[in-house]
Computed example of a mutant assay.
Amino acid sequence: MDSAKRVVNGTCGRIWLDGDDVSECYGCKLSVKTTKEKIHMAGQMAVDNKITGIELTGSIKLYKCSSRMARLLGEKLKSGQDVRFTIISKLDDPDAYGAERISVTGVSFDDLMLADWESGKIGQTEVPFTYTDYKFIDMIPEE
C-alpha cells in the first residue's frame, strides 16, 4: 500500500436487494464462520480441528425511510412462507485499487422489526439474516 488513501472507505458502499437499490442502507456485514470437530491425533499432544461445515450470516443496517421490509416480509411470514432474497454488496472507493462486489443468495431474514422508535432520534434498524451461498463478482486486486 502506497498511502492511507488506498484504505477502502465504507461510505462508498451500496447494496441491492433482489435488484433494487437500497439507498437507505448505511451498513452491511457478510460473514463465513467455520464449524469444526476436534481431532485427537495419536502421538500429538495438541488437539487439531477438522472443518465440517460453514455458517453464512450477515446483517444490513437501514435508516427508517419506508416500510420496505414490512412490505417484503410482513404478510408472507405471517402465512408461513419461507421468503428468500439475493443481496449484492458493492464497495467502490475511488481512491482504492478497485471495487469489490459480492452476491449472496438464499437470504433468509431472521426477524422483522414492526416498530422501534424514540422521540428525538433518527430511525434506524439492523436486519440480521442467514444465506446459503456467496460469489465474488469483483475483487480488489493486490498491489
Rank of each mutant, 00 (worst) to 15 (best):
M69N: 11
G74D: 12
C12M: 05
L73D: 12
K29F: 06
I60N: 02
E75F: 07
D95A: 14
W16L: 09
G10S: 11
K38P: 05
I102Q: 01
A4V: 14
K78I: 10
R68M: 14
M41Q: 14
T11R: 13
S67K: 09
G74K: 03
S59C: 08
H40A: 03
P94A: 11
M41F: 11
G19F: 02
S31N: 13
K64R: 12
K50L: 01
D93Q: 02
K33Q: 15
I88G: 05
A70L: 12
L91C: 07
H40M: 02
L77D: 03
G58D: 06
Q44Y: 08
E75G: 12
S103Q: 15
K33W: 06
A96N: 15
E100I: 09
R71S: 11
L17Y: 07
R68C: 03
M41E: 13
M41N: 11
D2G: 14
K50A: 02
Y26R: 01
V22E: 11
S59H: 05
V32L: 04
I39L: 04
S66N: 13
W16G: 04
T52E: 10
R101Y: 08
G19L: 02
M69W: 11
G19K: 00
A46Q: 03
G27F: 06
K38I: 02
R71E: 15
K29D: 09
G43I: 02
D2E: 13
D93N: 05
K61V: 05
M41V: 15
D18R: 00
Q44H: 10
S3H: 14
V83W: 07
V104N: 06
C25D: 08
Q44V: 15
N49I: 00
S66G: 11
K90L: 11
G106C: 08
T35M: 07
G27R: 06
K61L: 09
G98M: 12
A99K: 12
C25T: 13
R71D: 15
L30R: 01
C25V: 10
T57W: 00
E100A: 13
K61H: 13
A46W: 01
A46N: 03
I51T: 00
I15Q: 02
M45A: 15
R101M: 13
C28P: 06
S3N: 15
T34F: 00
T52I: 15
Q81E: 14
N9M: 03
S66Y: 06
S89R: 10
C65S: 13
I39P: 00
A96W: 07
G53R: 04
G27M: 08
I88C: 05
L56K: 09
G27A: 06
T11A: 09
I15L: 05
I15A: 02
L30M: 04
S59W: 03
S108H: 13
V22H: 09
G106S: 07
D95Q: 14
C25Q: 07
E75H: 09
L73W: 12
E100Q: 14
C28H: 05
D92R: 00
L62Q: 04
S31E: 14
L30N: 00
K64M: 10
P94V: 11
I102C: 03
